[in-house]
Design a protein around this nucleic acid. Structure first.
Length: 478
RNA sequence: GCCAAGGUAGCUUAGAGGCGAAGCGGUGGACUGCAGAUCCAUUACACGGGAGUUCAAAUCUCUCCCUUGGCUCCA
């Protein structure tokens, strides 16, 4: 039974899709006017894991994301760089998709561009106008918040409180908190509409897109915490008014902020880190681990030091996975050739052992606890800590030679599942790098060094090891 | 002013009434020619202060202190 924290009710609820077994998941995508930053990465990795887990749990997940490719920021950026706004948007959209691919975010089924849903947007505005929820002014078409008494239910605000700190509200609007559905414009990218040329407001694209692919009601809507107000609030108002159906979304999920060195990430503070900059310094998996070591709703603090910690922690899991592989591979490659007469038999571990049952039981317990942790609002930090507990016990038994192949094989399958769910790739280097020239050359150097070691030429051996280390190749003598 | 999230060992995080918290880091030991990895031990009977409820409180209640964020665009 999966429980999800619902921003709307501010409590954990048992998850039940509208349609049995089929989940419609929408997550707000980026406005493509610049390179994506590590805050985006945090959010999209979180939802990537959520989608992966729901699939693992047997649900069929349709994960939809919008791409905001028309917006003031894009236009301003295009003007300042002398580009066409739509070209600029395409360019950064491509960069975004590349970044996501590198981060291992691969579960989005469809990316929907705002500019390719102008007809749906206009249709929804038309509906809202006809039913009296929207009105037209000289500047555009606005949603009349006073017609929707539930406005503020997601962000827990009262309409009265909203206009307190407003600066210079548009006098043509009926209420200061009314928001634009259509902006009348005559410059640059504009589309024709019954209300004149212009372009859509920010909020309407999402509901137009979700209505097109999901209908007026669906399961999960996700995004960053900062989108709750006003964006998601506006979405609810639009869609529920247009369709007359409530709720538009059953579960609202929001990811916490990523801060840098305890401060909000912003361009003015100079602590703005793009995904590209990040993955120049650290493998994407390290960032993924960092992300998953904090609950998705909690704020997360990014710093070099913490990323180093994540790197070391992840190394421990990878190392463990490699150890298992090695133990099992030794068997497959040398077990048949082993004969008791040989003076130095190849090291191997027995196929079965007397403790097999015990290890299988431990594995099952760990699996159950892991699933329980993930079921409980996707508690990845707890899930990871369970893995570490398990790894320690198995390592101990590996060291003591008290574990056999059979349980190790089961463990390997379990970790394959884990790597799928969390989006890691634990595959050991030995599996990946066969037929690789670099690897062969390294093997050659290692062979030579082993001969030096036989001659007890420690000085040269150590120098070779140290120089390999400088090249990023870590040599560990057994 | 209004809303929200927090303050748990050196660092990063789980836990949410009773059971040894996990990882990283430090120190010592086992193993090793050395180093690394791994294991064992230790740092470490941790929960911002105060009061209350309870047989029992990091966990519930009250109160105080502090941090961060949102209320304009933002994942």
């Amino acid at each position: 039974m999966i429980k999800i924290y619902n921003t709307l009710t501010r409590s954990k609820e048992t998850f039940k899709p509208v349609k049995e077994n089929r989940i419609k998941l929408f997550v707000c995508g980026p406005t493509v006017y610049d390179d994506s930053h590590i805050g985006h990465a945090r959010t999209y990795i979180s939802f990537d894991v959520i989608a992966r887990y729901l699939k693992y749990r047997g649900f069929s997940v349709f994960y939809l994301q919008n791409i905001t490719d028309i917006d003031d920021k894009i236009i301003n950026r295009a003007i300042s760089t002398g580009n066409d706004p739509l070209d600029l948007a395409r360019e950064f959209e491509a960069e975004y998709l590349k970044d996501m691919e590198k981060l291992g975010v691969e579960n989005v089924n469809f990316y929907a561009r705002a500019t390719e849903h102008i007809e749906e947007i206009k249709a929804q505005i038309e509906t809202l106008l006809k039913s009296g929820f929207a009105y037209e002014t000289d500047n555009g078409v606005y949603f009349d918040v006073s017609k929707y008494p539930d406005f503020g239910k997601l962000s827990n605000r009262k309409i009265e409180d909203l206009n307190v700190h407003r600066i210079s509200p548009d006098p043509n609007k009926r209420n200061p908190e009314d928001f634009a559905l259509w902006k009348k414009k005559d410059v640059k990218p504009v589309w024709n509409s019954p209300w004149g040329a212009g372009r859509p407001g920010w909020h309407i694209e999402d509901t137009a897109i979700t209505e097109e692919y999901f209908g007026p009601q669906y399961d999960i809507h996700g995004g960053g915490l900062d989108l709750i107000f006003p964006h998601h609030e506006a979405e609810i108002a639009q869609m529920e008014s247009a369709s007359g159906k409530k709720p538009m979304v059953r579960y609202w999920m929001h990811t916490g902020f990523l801060n840098v060195n305890g401060e909000k990430m912003s361009k003015s503070l100079g602590n703005f880190i793009t995904i590209k900059e990040l993955i120049k310094k650290y493998p994407p998996e390290v960032f993924r681990f960092f992300t998953l070591s904090t609950h998705y709703r909690s704020p997360i603090d990014f710093s070099q030091e913490i990323l180093e910690q994540s790197q070391n922690s992840l190394k421990r899991i990878n190392k463990f996975y490699e150890t298992i592989d090695e133990l099992l591979n030794i068997e497959t490659s040398t077990f048949d050739q082993y004969s008791p007469e040989e003076s130095s038999p190849p090291s191997y571990i027995p196929e079965t052992g007397e403790n097999d049952e015990q290890f299988n039981r431990l594995l099952e317990e760990t699996r159950i606890k892991f699933l329980e942790a993930m079921d409980n609002d996707f508690n990845t930090p707890l899930a990871l800590s369970l893995l570490f507990d398990f790894i320690r016990v198995i390592n101990r038994n590996v060291q003591q030679g008290t574990i056999s192949q059979k349980p190790l094989l089961n463990i390997k399958f379990f970790f394959n599942d884990i790597s799928n769910i969390l989006g890691f790739n634990f595959t050991s280097t030995s599996e990946n790098s066969k037929n690789n020239l670099t690897e062969e050359l390294v093997d050659l150097i290692v062979d030579i060094r082993n001969k030096l070691r036989e001659k007890k030429d420690w000085e040269l051996s150590d120098e070779i090891r140290s120089q390999l280390d400088d090249l990023g190749i870590i040599l560990e003598d057994k």
